[in-house]
Design a protein around this nucleic acid. Structure first.
Lengths: 132, 132
DNA sequence: TCTATAGTTCCGAATTCACGAACTATTGAA
DNA sequence: TTCAATAGTTCGTGAATTCGGAACTATAGA
């Protein structure tokens, strides 16, 4: 009955600091990258594991709220689950190039890490770097 | 006698998360923007007030350390003071376009805020918006 | 040697963050 | 209807960060 509507900041209330802070967390960055990449709708539980790491539901919920509060995604309740879509297009209007550059940088970094893991794996096949 | 050398991460140890986190603080963002803008040397105490707000020395020192640890600036002791330079060029190699986009977004936001302040000032000349 | 300046370190208070437990809302089945 | 399952939120507590004053270190100059 309650179903308080989700808060979403209006475009002019979105701040750079807010965006950077939201995306400075690796889990949130991974979630956001995924939502951006596949422009289809996404519910939250798809992310109960992010990059081979289990995320508790409550933590996940907070991460989604952080992304919404920062204005990065828009969430919509659809029955029992939630649909999440990125607000890239809007943000691109206000801060051109920002999100593309960040997502791109994250991609570069992931690739670098994957390379590093391959090299490590060759020598000692078992341990992986950077997956604490 | 002590003068432990300042820590600076090597280029490949610089992370996107680290950069975003460092720049998600408005004071650090302002400091960094300034260092980037004026490519001349900068000591820390130039920033004892940032955007009309007094910053305690200890806090300032922490902020500079955060920027160094994130790999955004390089600090060098010169006599009694410190010389700070941005590491933009290096980072541009690894994460092309990232810093430009962020600094640019900050500029856009500052301009928007200045506009808002002007409009407010016309009506009630005294209070300024967003300078808590 | 004394003083002033620039910056760091230390530590306590305040804030933020993570996550388990309990809760709400919706759907589908009995 | 009622019951169970699913998706997500809220709350409370302990852990980790952050802020800033006080005391400290290092250098330059008188």
């Amino acid at each position: 009955m309650d179903v308080r509507p989700l808060f979403h900041p209006s475009l002019e209330d979105i701040t750079v600091e807010g965006i950077l802070h939201a995306l400075s967390d690796p889990i949130r960055a991974a979630i956001f990258a995924d939502i951006v990449a596949q422009e289809c709708s996404h519910n939250c539980s798809m992310f109960l594991t992010v990059s081979n790491k289990a995320i508790p539901r409550s933590t996940l919920s907070q991460h989604f709220r952080a992304l919404r509060d920062a204005g990065l995604i828009r969430g919509e309740r659809r029955g029992v689950e939630m649909h999440n879509a990125s607000r890239c297009a809007e943000i691109e209007e206000r801060f051109p190039g920002l999100l593309r550059a960040i997502v791109n940088a994250h991609t570069i970094q992931s690739n670098d890490e994957a390379q590093a893991n391959k090299r490590v794996a060759k020598r000692s096949p078992r341990r992986l770097v950077k997956n604490k």
